[in-house]
Design a protein around this nucleic acid. Structure first.
Lengths: 189, 189
DNA sequence: TACGAAACCTACCGCTCTACAGGTAATCGA
DNA sequence: TCGATTACCTGTAGAGCGGTAGGTTTCGTA
């Protein structure tokens, strides 16, 4: 095997570990997720895992980078009707949603290693959403709101619905509720 | 001092501890909040604290009961315009908001002791909000939504805005955004 | 003033956690 | 085939955790 292959193998193993970490964080949160639990899931000892990620925080960074890659795909290519599909898609992947809902909750505590990440992510996502709305409606939505004022609401609805849905999926039709909200945004004042 | 006074003193001490617990949970989350840290804040040892709450979970129960008392005040007495005042009031108490945002985030993880609480609370709050909307608008909002379908959105916006605001209060005008949303709800389709 | 309970304390147990140190076996390039 | 790197392992340090056991002091009550 050549060097490229070695490098690939290492990357694959790291990706495997990140995937396991996503699961464990979903189940126990970041603070509650032990390296040993993640390691066990990929058939390693805790010390073996530290060979790939030297500290717990380094592993978290890798987890957050994975997420970045995930939703950095479309950016300005989004259109409002595609947002509904995104939420529908999310509703089929409760694991990921649970991971990042748990992390978001933890991140508001002091000195949490994901705090900076979520703060910056929100700035970016709000700007993205404002862009999407501007593309769709121009400088004013039908109801008179600017895209910049509607964007935080859009993001809030997505996040807020996720918590209600995670806690009680039977009672909350997340995609349906989100479509209701989009309809609300598109209506005349 | 008589028996009543003793009982009162005990209750006061417990309330003091619960207040300290709210602070520590806001800073570190529930899992990250150690009994010792709470105890120190009221000038006790960890074991002294256990004299008032026999387990950590018992302390959490008391914290959640405090919250119940807090927002059980008005129920059906709420009106839509008072919701805006509530959000404005919340914006002046970041500590409490942070405590319960952190707890909500943790609660979606498996086996979390607050999970049942939040699940039931959402059922109750959605029903309350639907009631408020019905009182204001009747069986259909101006845009055609039923109160039952609008209620999850209302709750989602409140929660979702809190996360954005906690992470970046300078960038997010929580009360303003919420008023925007209320206006949206009140508009004709 | 004597008694019992309440309000703490010290000491400690057993467990878990992250991380470091150092070893060993497999692998890989030259 | 040899020397080095990689991929793990065992062992353990060091701290923190919730909770128990059992003592002592304070205090209300009779």
């Amino acid at each position: 095997m050549n060097a490229t292959n070695s490098r690939t193998r290492r990357e694959e193993r790291r990706a495997e570990i990140v995937r396991a970490a996503l699961e464990v964080i979903a189940e126990r949160g970041y603070r509650g997720a032990s390296l040993a639990a993640v390691a066990e899931r990929v058939g390693l000892t805790q010390q073996g895992l530290l060979h790939y990620f030297p500290t717990k925080d380094a592993l978290l960074v890798a987890v957050l980078e994975e997420r970045d890659q995930w939703d950095a795909v479309p950016d300005s290519r989004w259109r409002v009707d595609l947002l509904a599909s995104l939420v529908e898609y999310n509703a089929m992947r409760p694991g990921i949603i649970q991971t990042f809902s748990a992390l978001l909750g933890e991140s508001v505590t002091e000195g949490h290693p994901a705090r900076g990440y979520f703060t910056e992510r929100y700035v970016r996502v709000r700007a993205n959403m404002a862009g999407v709305l501007r593309t769709e409606y121009g400088d004013r939505l039908p109801n008179g709101l600017t895209p910049e004022r509607a964007a935080p609401l859009l993001v809030a609805v997505m996040d807020g619905l996720q918590y209600q849905w995670l806690l009680d999926p039977e009672s909350v039709d997340m995609p349906g509720a989100f479509r209701d909200f989009l309809a609300l945004l598109g209506e005349e004042a």
